[in-house]
Amino acid sequence: AEDTGVRVELAEEDDCTKSSIALRLWVEDQKKLKGKYKDSGAIEFAFDLDTEVPETVAQEMVDSGFFLEIDVKIVGKSIRDRVSLIKWRRQRSASARN
């Protein structure tokens, strides 16, 4: 996947059963973001794989003041890429069990 400069990873072991998972996001390469990333921390949050949309969470982060509106797409894409990978891994392990 394209390097967005934003890292998103699992904040807990994926047991492949819960739809809600904990994710952790942080800026790895500030040059990739157009706006100035104001926080030096990692943001941990719960995400429901079945019902939630990555871009909505990205907008909530903007609304909370973590990022500027101009970076909402790059944040949303970063979350979407990770969520896609998690879903793919789950499907793969489910088909391996069958």
């Binding site: 030096s40 990692a42 943001i43 909530e60």
Partner: peptide
């Protein structure tokens, strides 16, 4: 510092904590 800051927004809880230096890319 291990201090974590909790931000509630639109019903979601964001927990902000420092990123270890080792996880940051060289600028």
């Amino acid at each position: 510092s291990s201090a974590a800051q909790v931000v509630h927004s639109a019903g979601r809880r964001f927990i902000v904590s420092p990123v270890p230096e080792s996880r940051l890319r060289e600028q």
